[in-house]
Design a protein around this nucleic acid. Structure first.
Lengths: 240, 240
DNA sequence: CGTTTTCTTGATGGATATCAATTTTAGTGG
DNA sequence: CCACTAAAATTGATATCCATCAAGAAAACG
């Protein structure tokens, strides 16, 4: 197997604190794997035998309940650590990770986690930050589901997606991977029907531009207003 | 200020991996603080200058949105690490922690976090586990809010509370701190009215026993059935 | 070009928020 | 110890958001 070039990862937060020699050493323990669109990196409930760093592409992380309802937990983008079940002392993956587009990831054996952790304390920091910011996001979602109604939640979800995986196009900002109404519904706790209605209405108002598995935000500002239920937002600075 | 006795904390997961001398050293850097019922350990938005270990008592962690709606994020019980904002690279506390009963916590300066982390790798592990299991819990809540209706969510919330902070009494299991209908509503994304109606109905069926800021679970099994929407649960083993 | 997947749109019903009024309980100070 | 007050809880009536049911159109795919 071809070894991974240091330059691909050197400026990721996870590797930032390490000397080049250390980076090489860490990379030597990993192998790089290609995941074609639609394939699973790991399945919910499977033994957590690896942890990963996504080099290229986008993954959809989904979870099914005991009763069989499916939800989209989040999307993983390039540069992110994922599948770190071992770090949280889980023996099995709590969710399934599916490639939303053709993707490439580095895989380390879970068994080396503890050794690597003691050898590279910066790995602990970056894992903590990864998990920590995921916790922040998830708690934000709980607040949204508690306090907001569907239209606001969908607006929030799209804005988050655009921030995380938005690609500038002339019409606005396009979400950089195929995403269906059903996917958005599973992220926001609603149905594809309601999402479809909302997007149709927004399209008429020039807020978004739709398509099959495709969403472009045309007016992020007005979406922000909708998301916050806040009529004054347009007059304020972008990041208060 | 009196120093903290090692025996109080030696068997907590956070200290388990450390030698007695190390435990003492860690404790020497902390100070112990009393928080009377109703007082705040820290406030949402305040500079995150300490992280904590709860020695005794119960805290309610709450968060208010931009629009002013309040939610209960979780309850902290004895032995738990909390306020570890620094570990997730947050400079300010993302929520408020209020003593639900008279409580005692150990406080370390956030500034020593990174030094302690490198010195005691087991601290990293235990912080990761703390944050990780919190993430699991929060994601479970998202799934519940997406897929379940209010009655199921309330059942889940009470079962979780009983597991975390249940005290065996002759009538069943009592939640070991004062908790109002409003609090339960803020945990489950509903209103105190709906919670009140649900608890009243359950009381008539002998599932729970209520009171002012007081909830006793009389039949955890049947509550489990309600929570899972699963008529077969009564015939199965407690932990599948 | 048929088949499947995704998306759209209308009609209806139901769960639960909201509005409104009391009652119960605990705490406080005279 | 008891009246007074504030906080918490209960319960009914009404309104509404959105899930569900239903049908079909549009887009992709082999």
């Amino acid at each position: 197997m071809a070894s991974v070039d240091r330059s691909l990862v050197a400026n990721l937060p996870m590797f930032a604190g390490l000397a080049p020699a250390e980076q090489d050493e860490l990379l030597r323990e990993a192998r790089s794997i290609r995941y074609p669109k639609g394939s699973a990196v790991f399945d919910q409930g499977a033994k957590a035998d690896h942890f990963y760093l996504l080099l290229h592409g986008h993954l959809r992380v989904e979870k099914v309940t005991l009763q069989g309802q499916q939800s989209v937990v989040r999307y993983v983008s390039g540069g992110e650590l994922f599948g770190v079940a071992q770090a949280m002392n889980l023996t099995h993956y709590p969710a399934t990770a599916v490639a939303a587009v053709d993707s490439i990831a580095l895989a380390w054996p879970s068994s080396s986690w503890n050794r690597l952790l003691t050898k590279y304390p910066s790995l602990a920091s970056s894992a903590l930050q990864t998990v920590g910011s995921r916790l922040q996001d998830t708690q934000a979602r709980v607040l949204e589901m508690s306090n907001e109604q569907v239209e606001q939640r969908v607006a929030h979800a799209l804005l988050r997606l655009a921030k995380q995986a938005g690609r500038k196009v002339d019409a606005g900002v396009e979400i950089d991977f195929p995403i269906s109404r059903q996917d958005v519904a599973e992220m926001t706790g609603t149905t594809l029907h309601t999402v479809s209605r909302i997007l149709s209405a927004w399209e008429q108002q020039g807020l978004v531009e739709g398509g099959r598995q495709r969403i472009v935000l045309r007016d992020a500002n007005r979406l922000h207003v909708l998301a916050e239920g806040d009529e004054g937002a347009l007059n304020r600075k972008p990041n208060p």
